[in-house]
């Protein structure tokens, strides 16, 4: 759980840094080029990463329960 929280916080802070960056940047930066499609890509990658982290955390919880079950 601690590992999961840590990775989530790291991940979220990464996006705060990115968003601060975006406010300061001019119109010529990469996020605003190509019809701003990179914004959509960033959102989809965020959702995908979040979902995978969530599924992985459920996976870890199940593994722990299974190990406890074997010990009994």
């Amino acid at each position: 759980m601690n590992n999961f929280k840590k990775s989530l916080t790291t991940f979220l802070s990464l996006f705060i840094i990115l968003s601060v960056d975006a406010q300061e940047a001019t119109n010529a930066d990469i996020m605003r080029s190509n019809g701003k499609i990179y914004v959509v890509v960033a959102i989809i990658v965020t959702i995908l990463t979040g979902l995978f982290l969530y599924v992985a955390s459920i996976d870890r919880k199940l593994t722990r329960l299974e190990k406890e079950q074997i010990k009994k």
Binding site: V55, D59, L62
Partner: peptide
């Protein structure tokens, strides 16, 4: 593969629930 992963969570849950009920 993502579908298989989610499926594996589900059948592991079913098997665990069965073991807990029988214990």
């Amino acid at each position: 593969l993502l579908g298989v992963w989610i499926t594996s969570l589900r059948f592991r849950y079913i098997l665990l629930a069965d073991q807990t009920n029988n214990a």
